[in-house]
């Protein structure tokens, strides 16, 4: 499996899979949402660590599996995940664009 963030990563977000159905989710505020576009973005390593801590309270395991930080980059239309892997997680299988989040987004 690939590394999720490069060493000097500036922007990062937290993702996980939801226990009940495995759905990809992102941390925001003090809860989890399904859409990457709304994910909370941390600027800098310290903010990232704080975000991950907030996303991993003791009772987290009851809903969420393995939260981790991953790198995102800023572009004209907001943030996008850096790795191919996180782009695919954010959208769905590239070979079935009728399935996953990309399909629900319409």
């Amino acid at each position: 499996m690939a590394q999720h963030s490069s060493k000097g990563a500036r922007f990062q977000a937290v993702t996980a899979n939801r226990l009940k159905d495995g759905e990809v989710v992102y941390f925001k505020g003090n809860g989890w949402i399904e859409n990457f576009a709304e994910a909370e973005i941390a600027d800098g390593q310290e903010a990232a660590e704080a975000l991950l801590t907030r996303a991993s309270p003791d009772n987290m395991e009851a809903f969420i599996l393995d939260p981790y930080l991953f790198e995102v980059s800023e572009s004209d239309n907001g943030f996008t995940p850096v790795s191919v892997r996180e782009n695919i997680r954010a959208k769905g299988p590239t070979v079935r664009t009728d399935l996953g989040k990309q399909a629900e987004a319409g």
């Binding site: 159905d21 495995g22 759905e23 990809v24 997680r89």
Partner: peptide, 8 residues
């Protein structure tokens, strides 16, 4: 039952 990228 495995966990994959998008689902189980």
């Amino acid at each position: 039952v495995y966990l994959q990228l998008h689902a189980y």
